[in-house]
């Protein structure tokens, strides 16, 4: 079983450069998130017992983490850049309904439904970005508006076109294998997608100049613009990314569950923000890491699913999450303060 656990922890480790000393780790944004993940894992390993540690238990939280993670990563990038995206819930619903209607209700080829669904996500994201950058209205308000607007649009159009709010789809084996299969009968293929997204986003944030731009825009928008960073284009691109992430999960869910409902996805709105904040990203922007977001996502998923293995009333899950969020943010603040008081490593004070 231990092999299983270390195996499943691999996506979390993606992107860390190995060989950092423990002391240095505490100066990184993900330090608190790592402790949080380990903490809740040990907690539920003790109180959840063998069922939690068995592969079915592992799959339960890993599946939740994977779907949430694919959305939380691009949402996290946006938050590092100082913007919020609340619209992901409705983008997910709109894209999964698009796919179910096109490929299920109308019977068009599966690939067309997938492309159109992703197109809906990308378009919605770009629209969010355009409105935020053109109007200077806070992104909280803009994406709150698109969250509601798109939910209504999805419901209305679905009812007009199909007369119902839930549409079935019969995916072909090919798309089932790529998006909606269960590996070993338990693990969603979405886990692999999550790893791919985490590696891609991690590479971009940590290793490329665009990552530097994202940190700079979130840190001080005016200075970033003065330094020649195309802040508006960058933000539009990031919104497009979160739209794409939400649509990808929409496609995955539609194929996995053989259909879509207009109410799908709304839980992702706050869960993605929780995962990102628990992952050490500063809500006001300018600080955060992909490794942290991955740990934050894992922490959320473990608490979300672990409660069912304790034998306690699951009514308490939200309470635990609430306490956890507060604790995580306080811990992250402490680590951030530590990082800011980080004296020269060589230790020689002149």
């Amino acid at each position: 079983m231990t092999v299983q656990i270390s195996d499943t922890a691999r996506p979390a480790a993606a992107g860390t450069s190995s060989g950092r000393s423990l002391r240095n780790l505490t100066y990184r944004p993900e330090a608190g998130a790592l402790i949080g993940t380990l903490g809740v894992f040990v907690f539920f390993a003790i109180f959840g017992g063998t069922h939690f540690l068995a592969s079915a238990g592992t799959a339960a939280w890993l599946n939740v983490a994977a779907e949430l993670g694919i959305i939380a990563l691009p949402v996290g990038l946006l938050m590092i850049a100082g913007e919020l995206d609340l619209s992901v819930g409705s983008v997910l619903a709109a894209s999964s309904m698009t796919m179910a209607i096109v490929s299920g209700y109308w019977g068009a080829p599966m690939i067309l439904g997938i492309v159109l669904a992703l197109g809906v996500g990308v378009t919605a994201g770009a629209l969010n970005g355009l409105i935020v950058t053109r109007t200077n209205v806070p992104s909280f308000v803009v994406t709150l508006a698109t969250l509601f607007g798109m939910a209504g649009l999805t419901l209305g159009l679905s009812r007009v076109i199909t007369g119902t709010t839930s549409v079935a789809l019969n995916p072909d084996p090919g798309s089932k294998a790529v998006f909606g299969t269960l590996i070993a009968g338990q693990f969603e293929v979405a886990i692999l997608w999550w790893i791919v997204v985490a590696l891609g986003v991690g590479w971009m944030l940590q290793m490329t100049k665009y990552g530097n731009w994202i940190l700079a825009v979130g840190g001080d928008k005016e200075s970033a613009r003065a330094a020649g960073i195309p802040t508006n284009r960058l933000k539009i691109a990031l919104y497009t990314g979160s739209g794409f992430g939400a649509a990808l999960v929409g496609v995955i869910q539609t194929i996995l569950y053989n259909g879509a409902q207009v109410a799908n996805g709304q839980s992702f709105v706050f869960n993605s923000i929780i995962a990102v904040v628990v992952g050490g990203v500063l809500l006001t922007g300018g600080y955060g890491s992909v490794v942290g977001i991955v740990f934050g996502t894992l922490t959320f998923a473990i608490v979300n699913q672990g409660i069912y293995y304790t034998g306690w009333n699951s009514d308490w899950a939200s309470f635990i999450l609430g306490v956890l969020i507060l604790a995580a943010v306080l811990m992250n603040n402490t680590f951030r303060r530590l990082a800011l008081s980080h004296a020269p490593r060589s230790g020689k004070k002149a």
């Binding site: 940190l215 700079a216 840190g219 001080d220 200075s223 970033a224 500063l282 300018g286 990082a339 800011l340």
Partner: peptide, 11 residues
């Protein structure tokens, strides 16, 4: 006009 939470090299 610098970025508090970025490294010296990055900023």
């Amino acid at each position: 006009g610098t970025f508090q939470l970025m490294s010296v090299g990055r900023s």
